[in-house]
Design a binder for these strands. Structure first.
Length: 574
DNA sequence: GCCGTTTTCGGCCCGACTGTTTTCAGTCG
C-alpha cells in the first residue's frame, strides 16, 4: 500500500513550493491531497483501479495524474522536478515551531542553512544575530524549537507505525506460511511514539531463512540493513527501521515477553523468577537446564504465579504487584466504546454532511455520534456562527428522521476564550446535547492563567467536556502549560468529563492523566476528532491510550448507551 | 491545483498575535 508514501510526497512538494514562494492556494491543494490520501482507509491503488481518484475531495485531474504515474512507474515527474537540487534537510527545518517557509528561505539564502545541523552551527556561531528582522527573541524561539525537534527525532507516531507493522506482517503472510507473527516492543505496548518496529515470527528453524528472505523482499523495504539466519532488518521509505526475529514455537511466549518489554517490566519479572529459583530469558523460563515454560506468554507468567498481563500495562507502573494481588484492571476495549464524542461535519472543517457522518458512524458499529463543529472564534476551521449552527442543527433533525435506530447528538467544540468565557452564549449552549470546550488560541499564557482559564470553562454548567487538555502535537508542539490536577479537581466537582482526543499526534490526555482522572472520579470522553469517515477509525489509538492509562469500560462515558448518556447529561444540567 | 443550483474563470485563506518594526511580515490555528 503506497498511501503513506504518496501522501508524504505531496506534503513534501507543498513544503518545497511554499519555501520557493509559490501560489499559496496551489500549495494548499497539495496539502489537501496529502491529507485525503493519508486518511484513506483503502489502498489508493484500488481507488485508482476503479478510476475514481478524481472522486476524492480535493483531487482533480492534475493530482490524479501524478498519483497514477507513481502507481504505474514508481516515480513522479512533478516531485522530481520540484525536489531536484533542493536539499532534503531543509524540509526538516519547517518542523521547528516558529520557523515557517519565509524564515527557512531567508536562512537558506542569507546564511546557507540547509539542515538542522547547519542551523545548530549557525546558532552556536552567533550567525543569526545580524540577519535582518531577526533579534534576540526570535533567535531564542528558534533555539527552543530546535531543541524540541531534536528531542523528538527518531520517534515515529504510533498512528504511522502500527499500520506499517500490519503491512509488514500481511506482506510476510502473503509470501510465506507463518504460525504466528506479532509486533512486539513499544508498538505492542501502544506507546504514543516508537523508535523502531520489532516483529516476531513464530516459525521452525528450518523455515527461518525463507521468512527472512521474504522480509528483505517486501515492497516497503527501501534498504536492507541485515538479513541473517534468524534475524533481518530493513529501513522503510519513511526512514523507519523494522527488525524481524524468527523464533521457534517453544520460545514464542518467552520471546514475546522479552521483546515486548518494557525493560523495567522485564527487570521486575526477572527478579520474581530469581526469587523462585528460576531463570527467565527470551528462550524460555528455566530451572537449571530444564525449560519449564516458554511456548506462550500465559505459561511464562504462570511460572511466576501471575496472570497474563496486557502489554499496554507493562511499564512497571504497579502492574506486576496488581497482577500478584489478583487486582489487574479489566481494560476497556473497542467493543466497550458505543459512540464517538468528537467529530466534525462539513459545516466546519469536516468533509461530510451531518447525515453522511452519522451513517459512517453507524456503519463503523457505533450507536451514536456527537457532531461537534467548531464555534465562530475559530474562523480558519469554518467555526459556526449562531445562524449556521442553527442551520446545522436543523439538518441534524432531518438526519435523525432519516436514520432510525441511531442517535445523533447536537454538539459543539466551543472555543474557550482568553478569559475562560465561552464562544457561544449560555442560551445557545443550553440548547445543545453535548458541549466540548477547547482552547485554540493564546497558547503562550502562564500556567496559572491557563489553568484558571480552563477551570472556569470546566465550571460552566453548559460544558460537558474539556477537549484536548494540553493542545500538544506530539513531536511538533509542546502542550500549553496547564495544571492537569487542578483541572481534574474542578471536573470532579462539577461532573465535567475530560476528553481523550484519539488523533495519533494528540493523544491528549495522556495515559498518565487518564489514570489520574479515573482515580479522581472524572469520566473520560473518547473522541476521534474525525473530519472524515475514514478518520473515525483513529479511535483505536484513543482506546490504546486509555488502556495504557488503566481505564476500564466504566471509566469512559462512551460506555453508556445513548439513552443513559442523555440521562446523565440531563442530570448534570438539572 | 480545485471547484461551480450564484461562476469553466476567478475565488479559495481569515484574523490574531508576535516581534520587529514606525507600518508590517511571518506564523499559526
Amino acid at each position: 500500500m503506497k498511501n503513506a508514501e504518496i501522501a508524504r510526497m505531496f506534503q513534501a512538494m507543498a513544503d518545497v513550493m511554499e519555501i520557493k514562494g509559490e501560489n499559496p492556494f496551489r500549495v494548499n491543494s497539495y496539502r489537501n491531497a496529502a491529507r485525503v490520501i493519508s486518511d484513506l482507509a483503502e489502498d489508493v491503488a484500488a481507488v485508482a483501479a476503479r478510476g475514481e481518484l478524481t472522486g476524492l475531495p480535493g483531487v482533480g485531474e492534475g493530482t490524479a495524474g501524478k498519483i497514477e504515474q507513481y502507481l504505474a512507474e514508481g516515480r513522479m515527474d512533478a516531485y522530481e522536478e520540484l525536489t531536484e537540487g533542493f536539499p532534503v534537510g531543509v524540509l526538516e527545518l519547517l518542523r521547528i515551531p516558529g520557523m515557517g517557509p519565509k524564515t527557512v528561505a531567508k536562512l537558506m539564502d542569507e546564511r546557507d542553512v540547509r539542515s538542522l545541523d547547519d542551523l545548530e552551527k549557525a546558532l552556536q556561531g552567533g550567525e543569526l544575530e545580524d540577519v535582518p528582522g531577526m533579534r534576540a527573541k526570535t533567535i531564542r524561539k528558534i533555539r527552543a524549537g530546535l531543541d524540541l525537534v531534536r528531542r523528538s527525532q527518531g520517534r515515529t507516531l504510533l498512528g504511522e507505525a502500527l499500520p506499517l507493522a500490519h503491512e509488514v506482517i500481511e506482506g510476510l503472510r502473503a509470501r510465506v506460511k507463518l504460525d504466528g507473527a506479532e509486533a512486539a516492543g513499544s508498538l505492542r505496548r501502544r506507546k504514543e511514539t516508537v523508535g523502531d518496529i520489532d516483529i516476531l515470527v513464530n516459525s521452525r528453524a528450518g523455515d527461518a531463512e525463507g521468512v527472512i528472505e521474504a522480509f528483505a523482499g517486501l515492497d516497503c523495504a527501501s534498504e536492507v540493513l541485515a538479513a541473517g539466519g534468524t534475524r533481518g532488518s530493513i529501513r522503510t521509505g519513511q526512514g523507519l527501521q523494522v527488525d524481524l526475529r524468527v523464533v521457534p514455537p517453544e520460545s514464542w511466549g518467552a520471546a514475546l515477553v522479552y521483546f515486548t518489554g518494557s525493560k523495567a517490566h522485564n527487570v521486575k519479572i526477572r527478579g520474581l523468577a530469581h526469587e523462585r529459583g528460576l531463570k527467565i530469558n527470551e528462550y524460555g523460563v528455566f530451572r537449571g537446564e530444564e525449560r519449564v515454560a516458554g511456548a506462550t506468554e500465559e505459561d511464562v507468567y504462570a511460572t511466576l504465579g501471575l496472570p497474563w498481563i496486557p502489554p499496554e500495562l507493562r511499564e512497571d507502573r504497579g502492574e506486576v504487584e496488581a497482577a500478584a494481588a489478583g487486582a489487574l484492571p479489566g481494560l476497556i476495549g473497542p467493543e466497550d466504546v458505543l459512540g464517538d464524542l468528537h467529530a466534525h461535519t462539513n459545516y466546519s472543517d469536516g468533509v461530510l454532511a451531518p447525515l453522511d457522518m452519522a451513517r459512517a458512524a453507524k456503519a463503523y458499529g457505533y450507536r451514536y455520534i456527537a457532531l461537534t463543529d467548531h464555534s465562530k472564534n475559530l474562523r480558519i476551521a469554518g467555526g459556526l456562527t449562531e445562524e449556521r449552527l442553527a442551520r446545522r442543527n436543523d439538518e441534524i433533525d432531518a438526519a435523525r428522521a432519516a436514520l432510525k435506530g441511531f442517535t445523533i447528538l447536537k454538539g459543539t467544540e466551543v472555543d474557550i476564550l482568553k478569559d475562560g468565557s465561552l464562544d457561544y452564549s449560555d442560551e445557545v449552549l443550553a440548547a445543545l446535547d453535548w458541549v466540548v470546550a477547547s482552547v485554540h488560541d493564546h497558547f503562550g499564557m502562564s500556567e496559572k492563567d491557563m489553568t484558571e482559564r480552563i477551570v472556569r470553562a470546566a465550571r460552566s454548567p453548559h460544558v460537558d467536556c474539556i477537549g484536548h487538555l494540553t493542545g500538544r502535537l506530539i513531536g511538533t508542539r509542546e502542550g500549553y502549560a496547564v495544571d492537569a490536577s487542578a483541572v481534574l479537581a474542578a471536573c470532579a466537582e462539577t461532573g465535567t468529563c475530560l476528553e481523550l482526543n484519539a488523533q495519533p499526534d494528540r493523544l491528549d490526555i495522556t495515559d498518565l492523566v487518564c489514570r489520574e482522572a479515573a482515580q479522581a472520579g472524572v469520566k473520560v470522553a473518547l473522541g476521534s476528532d474525525a473530519h472524515s469517515a475514514e478518520s473515525l477509525r483513529l479511535m483505536q489509538f484513543g482506546i490504546a491510550t486509555a488502556r495504557r492509562g488503566w481505564l476500564g469500560p466504566e471509566d469512559a462515558i462512551n460506555h453508556l448507551t445513548a439513552a443513559r448518556l442523555r440521562k446523565f447529561l440531563a442530570s448534570r444540567k438539572g
